[in-house]
Design a protein around this nucleic acid. Structure first.
Length: 270
DNA sequence: CGCGACTCCTGCCGGC
DNA sequence: TGCCGGCAGGAGTCGC
């Protein structure tokens, strides 16, 4: 997926176009996402007006009518606004037509994403059990330290656990561990409080910077307003295995942790 | 309960 | 040029 900065960039891009607008029609060309798109989604949102465009973790929460349209972009999804008469391409599975003449179009080649409905007052099971937002006051190095005690897994999959903190995907976990000088293979439960305090700060910094930059441009990611992000040239290690560390010149190493590729500098990270 | 493996799906890239 | 294997931004679920 787009990672958290890309989702936030999408939210900011689409929000001004949705707020106060009425849905004239929902078109589902392919309902087979990670879970089937509910058959009654059209009944829920047609002729209703968007009242808020929120985000929780990597879920976009669009308040409308008697509830919330929940959308997740998975690994390859995007939501963009296009003029209503824009030709439909492959993998453009859903259109939400607005009374403004614009259409919110959902595209997802791999169909790992989701589009679900949550009635007002009920919390969707996907949203319960989520840890704190990384840019909120509830996310601290002390929390990382406390939750990591007696955890035997490597620190990288630990910080990617949504029950620990949400929104830290493979790119930013990799970058934050580099910035904090921590070897991603280290056992989570054997890292000091001081190092977790530093790591939490680096997670906040890398995510905040990426959001400011409009998200990382990865292959074909396009933000909600159609503009690509400009963060990619700022990556120190992600996607750079075999290349030289920008800080010390050592050839960057790669390993797999939790089935995800992990790049690190064996000189700068311990 | 914690952990690692597996799974969903399509596209792309490198190697032969 | 084409085929094939491997890998890709996520994360729920299952088995041990």
């Amino acid at each position: 997926m787009p990672e958290l900065p890309e989702v936030e960039t999408t939210r900011r891009g689409i929000a001004p176009h949705l707020l106060g607008r009425r849905v004239t029609r929902l078109i589902v060309r392919d309902a087979r996402l990670r879970w089937p798109i509910p058959e009654d989604l059209g009944i829920q949102i047609e002729n209703q007006t968007f009242t808020a465009v929120r985000r929780r973790a990597k879920y976009l929460l669009l308040d409308i009518g008697g509830g919330t349209l929940i959308s997740h972009l998975g690994m390859s999804g995007s939501l963009r606004l296009v003029p209503a008469d824009t030709p439909v391409l492959k993998h453009e599975h859903v259109d939400i037509e607005l009374d403004s003449g614009m259409t919110l179009r959902y595209t997802d080649p791999r169909r790992f994403g989701a589009m679900l409905w949550q009635p007002a007052g009920a919390e969707h099971p996907l949203l319960s059990h989520l840890g704190p937002e990384p840019l909120s006051d509830e996310f601290t190095g002390e929390r990382l330290y406390q939750l990591s005690r007696k955890r035997s897994m490597a620190v990288k999959p630990f910080i990617m656990d949504n029950a620990v903190v949400v929104g830290v995907g493979n790119i930013y976990a990799t970058e934050a561990l580099f910035a904090a000088g921590i070897d991603p293979r280290r056992e989570a439960g054997r890292i000091s409080r001081a190092r977790y305090l530093a790591l939490a700060e680096e997670i906040r910094k890398v995510l905040a910077r990426a959001i400011d930059s409009g998200g990382t441009t990865l292959r074909d990611f396009i933000g909600g307003d159609g503009k690509p992000g400009y963060f990619q040239q700022e990556l120190f290690v992600y996607g750079r295995a075999g290349q030289l560390c920008k800080l010390c010149g050592t050839t960057l190493s790669e390993c797999r942790l939790g089935q995800r590729s992990s790049v690190f500098c064996r000189h700068c990270q311990s």
